[in-house]
Design a protein around this nucleic acid. Sequence first.
DNA 1: CGGCACGCTGGAAACGATTACATGATCGGA
DNA 2: TCCGATCATGTAATCGTTTCCAGCGTGCCG
Lengths: 342, 342
Amino acid sequence: MVGIKDVARAAGLSVATVSRALNGQSAVSDGARAKVLSAAEALGYRPNVVARSLRTDRTRTIGLVISDVLNPYFTELARSVEEEARALGYSVIIGNADERAELEDHHVRSLMERRIDGLLVSPADGRSPTTLDAASGTTPVVFVDRWIPGSDAPVVRSDGRGAIRDLVAHLYGLGHRRLAIITGPAATTTGRERVEAFRAALSEFGLSLPDSHVGTGDFQAESGRLATEAFLDLPERPDAVFATDNLMALGALDAIRDRGLRVPGDIALAAFDDIPWFPHTAPPITAIAQPTAELGRVAVRALAGLIAGEPATSTVLPAHLVVRRSCGEPEPSAPTGGATRE
Amino acid sequence: MVGIKDVARAAGLSVATVSRALNGQSAVSDGARAKVLSAAEALGYRPNVVARSLRTDRTRTIGLVISDVLNPYFTELARSVEEEARALGYSVIIGNADERAELEDHHVRSLMERRIDGLLVSPADGRSPTTLDAASGTTPVVFVDRWIPGSDAPVVRSDGRGAIRDLVAHLYGLGHRRLAIITGPAATTTGRERVEAFRAALSEFGLSLPDSHVGTGDFQAESGRLATEAFLDLPERPDAVFATDNLMALGALDAIRDRGLRVPGDIALAAFDDIPWFPHTAPPITAIAQPTAELGRVAVRALAGLIAGEPATSTVLPAHLVVRRSCGEPEPSAPTGGATRE
DNA sequence: CGGCACGCTGGAAACGATTACATGATCGGA
DNA sequence: TCCGATCATGTAATCGTTTCCAGCGTGCCG
């Protein structure tokens, strides 16, 4: 591999001058710069970023630990994170936790060892000591989507409360009274928050949420199927199911289809997180959409700020309801507040 | 940050002994090892992999450049690659090319600068000189799914010819005669291969493929929509469309739906690449399934072999047709060879 | 004309690990 | 008893950069 020494020799200059010319930092004469540039070009010199990082203690790399790459929500997040990071001159290393705490730990540890400049994490386990340690260490950390209570790292997320209330209003308006929810793990902030918002909205409409109507999932499709099967086995089955992520909604759809039931005729279905496939499922699924790409961009900017020594800033963006047909034919009158119709 | 020197001081030993004890390479006395281990533990020592990599010239990291993270096919591939790599002690850095040649170049270059031990790439541009250079350099490279003709790097891919023939037979059996295809970019091997296999299968059934029935897409949803609109504008529109990837099928579905037409009544639709959503679309989509996860695992093993100095091995795995309802109600008799029915 | 500041350059010291080589101790066999 | 082999350990070189510092020339000002 051609190194800076080879360039220096070819240009007839010292490595120090070559380094300066290449990094454009301090003063180098035009002649020297030209010689260096052409020598580097001719030799096809590519700096060894490993050596550079060792010296500068900066890797220009950020880590992103997401809970599940197979979840379209997170891939969209990952995409926007990478895009924004690249624009800011950073590379991104993605770690996929697969909703498993020990994998999350593995990735967080491994990324810290790589001396990333900053870490973006959406914790699969909201109590992970490893992640909490990382967040309280010297490496800048920003939580995105989910966070760990008790850490003072900034959080970039979207607030689904308003949209969940809109959803309940929508369901209520269509005549549904026995509402059920499939939650995420209680160890995640989003898992807890969504069920709380749902419960609050229900009580606002004078409805209750019996334990039998709360299915605990893990944000994966299979758990959505199981929870839904349990609902369908109830003596009085719910007439609407709210899956708190898109994969569990998929599982719910499977379970309903396998019983030969129909959506929304036999049972209504709605999901948290909107994805490109929802308009195309049978029937198109009513969902709560987060500004996912924006979330990623804002999180990266917050992290870059932190790395540059700026103060931490948390951000909360709104989510909104997208009404389709999976809860029943929408009433032709004015839509509920803030909801989009497709 | 606590370094090896701190551990050495705490253990009352030299850094050399500490390094040896930690890496378990050469002989260290039991006493020394115990002292080192407890000191490292007590101090929370984590090796600086940047420094280690500089010295050893190995990063225990492989790069994966995929054409589009938003495509479920590639996220599944990425997931299995990461999983297998982790099992083998490697980390993975993913680069998303977004089907853009210049982004692919950027990522390949950036990964090489990072001194990754090996590179897995599914080229968005089958003529990229940067990628070709990388493949002919000293860093081991394995192509997965797509490859670059002219390079002798091993290729791990799946052969869709048989399944495409099965698909054509299936369509023919359902009475479809005017078949159309939405291809990927001619710059990709998969783009060319699928249309060739399709054309070959058609002629086997005595059908021709006029130019007007070949829409060129770029493996993204929007291009599928545009190509399909062109088909629908034809004086005599095709009665079946084969989209050569899942996103273009999504776009096709959009276009068909927007015209108020129905699948398969007005027009049949099939896709290359099966994804979890296809059983749930309206109607469920007939697709050709690749053994995606297996592809990823095999590719990683081939790359690890290359890194270890073993000879290169290419692999071709079979794809198969999964019949659903988007081409019409399947005939109740024996299915065409090798196809699965759902 | 002397001195100072400034611009450009090169030598050499980091960065934190691994590892070649040297050293000292211990032990067995001649 | 002495020598050589073996084992555990330490010293120092090394990886490829960046960057501190010193030196040297040049130009400007007093």
